[in-house]
Design a binder for these strands. Structure first.
Lengths: 220, 220
DNA sequence: AAAGGATCGTGACGAGCCGTCAACTTTCGG
DNA sequence: CCGAAAGTTGACGGCTCGTCACGATCCTTT
């Protein structure tokens, strides 16, 4: 009896070269990409599964072979997105040895990520609705998952003054999101500028901000 | 012929005491309140007009006697909300003579407003989706409409250093929204605490923040 | 290599929601 | 007290939803 078990237990090979697996993976990607675009355009709530599938050459029922629901495909998009930025953010903060490095590293990584592909952030931003209630927090999705722990660690090491980590995290996330929103709206293109501004503000407050030469005082 | 015109032109009185007008106003309020609750619970996108009307004793067709669409009732809610806080915010900043008064007044007014009724902020926050695309910006809806102009004025008067008003506004809004989110989640109840934290951060940066006594260094 | 089995794509289906509207009830004005 | 005006109601056709039984496609086994 064991023979049969041994025979069937160790799979010969995952066979990723089969034609079936190939088109399957391809279809999944097609749906994911279409969903990303539609979500970014219509918003999560207003988007229907039909909208997504209509943006592909596939039939309506096919969607449900790959995802159980609209929510699941959304989650998949955000997971993939978070998976790309989360390690970068954490690594950046892990190697920081000063407050300035910690803060500017976080902002720079996030702003460069947003600048690289607006649709990710837009999808996230456009869909704070259902998420807040039933799914993960936006921080999780945006890759700020470990920010709080990193902050607590930095405070414990004496890198940061002993402030409230929750408040500080809220402030960092708020500034990052709102400036990123400006980038997504094309009102602000340069990640470096956003990073410089946000870092200066958090480190030294308004009076430490880079000043803009007022038109009427400009030297000749 | 003019006689008829004169006769019909000057309305006798708006008659706000009529029973008809009374139940009409009452119905409008009923729908608005029901909509506020449903929006806050389901989110704008997921909410249907039927959902709203089901939360009232009225029939489905009645909704359309008061509002043309889901979007219109949502707009009405936000308008009313903004109408209550906008003058307060503007007045608070108008009488400010220092940066500290300007910033803390803005934060205090907003946080007290949110603390007074979470559902307003929650409804706003839950529905960033459709809004960003088709309607006003969140700043408008939340009453931060005139913040940018007030900032520009304060910079011109020399109250603020000559910084970029758009960036600064983004930062203020971001910190305000994210801390308000904590209040709506009941993780933070006191508007004064939020005001103190946000003001200190924007004025002097992280190092100016109120410190929390670390457990292991607490004096005996 | 050919057929049986397993997997996946398809589009038609019932359910449910949309906004409208004709008929009924209530209120107002004379 | 009655006719007109205004408001409410629930049922209706048109639409989109997610599902599912069927047929096509690919893999495997002998």
């Amino acid at each position: 009896m064991d023979i049969e078990l041994i025979k069937s237990a160790p799979r010969p090979a995952p066979k990723p070269t089969g034609k079936r697996e190939l088109t399957k993976a391809q279809n999944r990607l097609t749906i994911l990409e279409a969903a990303r675009q539609v979500f970014a355009e219509l918003g999560y709530g207003a988007t229907t599964v039909r909208d997504i599938i209509r943006a592909t050459p596939l039939a309506s029922g096919t969607f449900y072979n790959y995802f159980q629901s609209k929510e699941e495909v959304f989650q998949a998009i955000q997971d993939e997105s978070a998976l790309r930025i989360r390690p970068r953010l954490h690594e950046e903060r892990a190697k920081a040895s000063t407050v300035e490095e910690f803060i500017s590293g976080t902002f720079r990584t996030f702003f460069e990520f947003v600048a690289g592909d607006h649709s990710n952030f837009r999808t996230l931003r456009m869909n704070t609705d259902t998420l807040r209630v039933r799914m993960d927090t936006p921080e999780t999705i945006a890759g700020f998952e470990e920010l709080r722990e990193d902050l607590v660690g930095a405070i414990a090491k004496g890198m940061f003054p002993p402030v409230d980590a929750d408040f500080l995290m809220a402030a960092i996330v708020g500034v990052a999101f709102e400036l990123a929103e400006r980038m997504a709206r094309r009102e602000l293109r340069d990640p470096a500028t956003a990073t410089a501004f946000a870092t200066a503000l958090l480190l030294g407050g308004i009076h430490a901000l880079p000043t803009v030469t007022p038109p009427d005082i400009a030297a000749p």
